[in-house]
Amino acid sequence: MTDYWSMDAALAEETLVPTKFKYGALGVASVLEPGSVRNDVEAGAKVEMPLWLATQLTRRGMTTFSLPEIYHERYRRKLNAGAECINLKGRAPYFYDVGNKCNEFLQDLTLSAFLSRTYATRYRELVSKGLSTVSGEAMLELQSKLSLEELAVFEAGRDSVSRAEMWSRGARPRRAAVYLPIRKRASAGREEEQQREARQRTNK
């Protein structure tokens, strides 16, 4: 999240958040909302925009933004009741990162505790399924509902277990074969041709 070069951090900031404009803005409405009829955003209008834009504008005091829907009371109740069952991948693939980022700005007193609690409940399943061999179907089901941060944890666990298994079977890890495409021949052929042409010219 804090890493500037992290691809996931950049993608996490693409998440749309509901934003309220304090001042009007000219000519951006159709960019922010492709279906809009007018070109300008009026003061007080509610628009969804990516997190990276919302934070920057809020820092300058031009907008205010609120939490995305997944962190609202309704979903919180659901997640508190059964965090394992909620499909985060479809609703909020960067559940924790976005939550963290919003927390920095909105300073929600309960958000951090809520996120840790959610992770703690979901983590149990990650451990029991990630560190043992489960059937492909169960794995697919789990993979389809984990948020991307959780998926990284899960894959890391699976990877280390499968490596340990491979070692105990006595096999070596498959090495990714990288063959550079050979371009030399084409250019060499061209050079030969040029040389031949040059020779012919001198012969003439």
């Binding site: 505790a113 703690a120 944890v153 899960f154 666990g157 280390s160």
Partner: peptide, 28 residues
Amino acid sequence: ASESNKIRLLFEHSLNVWHQLSKNDKQW
């Protein structure tokens, strides 16, 4: 050694997640 290796990646990652979640709150 082999047992700690087996759990290292998963455990390290999830401790990181927790750390981020709790640190983030404390800061402000």
